[in-house]
Amino acid sequence: MSEQFFDWEYAIGFMPTLLEGLWVTIQVTVVAFILAAILGLLMALGRRSDNPWIAQPIGAIVEFIRSTPLLVQLFIFFYVLPRYGLRMPAFIVGTIALGLHYGTYTSEIYRAGIDAIDRGQWEAARALNFSPVRTWVGIVLPQAIPPMIPALGNYLVAMFKESAQLSAITVVELTLTARTIGTQSFRFLEPFTMAGVLYFLISYPSSLVVQRLEKRYAGK
């Protein structure tokens, strides 16, 4: 074939395959983000518990996960756990590990957001005799969560990019798809460039949206 610097014909030919990889990346990101949002809340609530037997172990786990690389966690989940009988598809393992890792970050956002709620709100809730669950669900979280949305959005964008690490455990997402295409034809420039463009086309507009949200909540 031609010896041009960038082979457009080749690039257009593999785009459908690459888009399939992008679709996997998006699925991983969305599911892992939902997981991170839920786990983060649970971790934040756990660390606030009056019971030290709950608060301290959760605190230790959170600090441990946050202080070790995602890649190491992926390898442990993927290579070590199956030796002890816990065998799951790479997609599931990768999504859980990514969600868990980022859950430790979102838990800090929740913690700050919850701490920002005025003590008077808790006292009013108590004076009106709300149950603890109702106090959280009806009074505290509806006030705490909206200002957290920009910070959570930043992590969503970060997770979208970091999901590339799942290629190391054979999840056929965008990065691994690009690599496979390159390996098959011995041309890596086009697949990795196009993969980069696809990452950019999603993450850049997303971060603009997050910036607008930040301004909106900062204005209030």
Partner: peptide, 24 residues
């Protein structure tokens, strides 16, 4: 009744008053 009111800022005046009777 508190010095600093402690109304629920994310609820209308009406819902501030109905919330506890409904849920409690």
């Amino acid at each position: 009744v508190f010095q600093h009111f402690n109304l629920f800022p994310h609820m209308t005046a009406l819902r501030n008053v109905t919330e506890a009777p409904i849920h409690v």
